[in-house]
Design a binder for these strands. Structure first.
Lengths: 156, 156
DNA sequence: GTTGAAAAGTGCTGCGA
DNA sequence: TCGCAGCACTTTTCAAC
């Protein structure tokens, strides 16, 4: 059979399985098997292989943050005093539970974070008390998201 | 019983269920029931209620993009020629499958996007051919993520 | 690697408290 | 409203191809 439909060791079947489950992880293996015209056992074997390869990190429930009172999504450009303080800053930011993503990046900012807060006063508290006071952080720039127009996974 | 442990109609049990499933959606209800010392049926009822309320959007498989050859995560600050072109731009960017997040936002940029590409030449193609050519987009600024240090959901 | 079916475990539903 | 118990469905395993 032809290989290299895509990268690494994934063949077409693997990619099809991933594509389906990336949209909805609750679809049963038996249904996927029917759709792709293979047996349920095969789906199971492929999934196990991909889990062992580290391609699949796990699954999670997607909740709507706004429905439970988390109304503000913001991005934070962070300037460090010295680039070498990066590792330190990561450890400190891990303690701030409102930080949901943190990137070490190129460009004007040393680091770039995504944070989710309940309201403006919560955001102010996180910025002033939890983040700007951290050792090594010089200053931050805040971009507030007024609307999330697209939110999806990559298409394989 | 006391209500308002948190926002809206969620009581402590609901929040505990969500917290567990947000980290790993594959944990069986029976196990959650044991952990929280209630019956499996109760978990089921609570989940159903939260799904109907729109708090739970669904579940999805978390894959490691790097393991399947998507090596570059970048953020894109987008300047529109006119703010009124926002709706148009959203529709056009929905067609670019490398765009996984798009926000309408405050600050210097009109819009802010997160994109995932295979390599630098793929990124260049997406930027030059797919995005910068779109109607209404004046220019973009690219921030490339060299390392994703934190990636998680909000803590309730 | 794949299949099909049997065994084990989980999700769902209705009745009772 | 919650918990228990039985049924239906899914996942998992395994011998055979």
């Amino acid at each position: 059979m032809e290989k290299n439909y895509t990268n690494y060791d994934l063949d077409k079947l693997d990619v099809q399985i991933l594509s389906i489950l990336m949209e909805d992880a609750s679809i049963p293996y038996t249904e996927i098997a029917k759709k792709l015209i293979v047996s349920g056992g095969t789906i199971h074997v492929r999934m196990k292989k991909m889990e062992e390869m580290g391609i699949i990190r796990g699954s999670n429930l997607i909740i709507n943050p706004q429905k439970i009172g988390f109304d503000i999504t913001a991005f934070l450009g962070i300037y460090l005093e010295k680039g070498s303080q990066y590792a330190d800053a990561v450890e400190q930011l891990k303690q701030v539970k409102e930080v949901v993503e943190l990137h070490y990046c190129t460009g004007q900012y040393s680091m770039f974070a995504k944070i989710i807060c309940k309201d403006t006063s919560h955001l102010r508290k996180v910025l002033n008390e939890d983040i700007q006071g951290l050792k090594g952080i010089q200053r931050t720039e805040t971009i507030i998201s007024l609307e999330e127009s697209i939110k999806r996974q990559i298409t394989l």
